[in-house]
């Protein structure tokens, strides 16, 4: 690949990615009333996306069951447990990540 071809490749990836982020803002501009269903999506889609992203993070551990799956479940349970107990975001993330790192690096079977 020549330098020009490399630049074009990167530019296509950049413009395409930008399009995925900007297009809805152009399709539903500020000065026109947004369709009611689109507003409805704005209210009910994001909670679903948060669920989708959780599964996304676990995708490899779900499809290939191994010890990382177990550590992922344990560390996830610790994260959620501490979060429901203390309701402190930083603490929950820190505890969950630390336990995952420790389990992955020091517990072998």
């Amino acid at each position: 690949m020549t330098l020009t071809e490399q630049i074009i490749t990167i530019a296509i990836a950049s413009v395409t990615t930008m399009a995925t982020r900007f297009v809805p803002f152009f399709v539903f501009p500020e000065h026109k009333p947004t369709p009611r269903f689109v507003k409805y999506l704005g209210d009910y889609l994001p909670p679903a996306i948060l669920g989708i992203l959780v599964v996304y993070c676990y995708k490899d551990q779900i499809l290939t069951i191994n010890r990382e799956t177990l550590w992922g479940i344990i560390a996830g349970t610790i994260t959620l447990g501490i979060h429901f107990w203390k309701q402190n975001m930083m603490l929950s993330i820190l505890a969950g990540t630390a336990s995952y790192i420790l389990l992955l690096n020091f517990v072998h079977f």
């Binding site: 948060l50 959780v54 993070c57 550590w71 994260t79 959620l80 990540t97 995952y100 790192i101």
Partner: peptide
């Protein structure tokens, strides 16, 4: 530091919670 990427999983778990 194998496992540090779990910080993202933990983040999304907490936001979901």
């Amino acid at each position: 530091l194998p496992g540090l990427d779990f910080v993202m999983t933990a983040l999304f778990l907490v936001l979901f919670a």
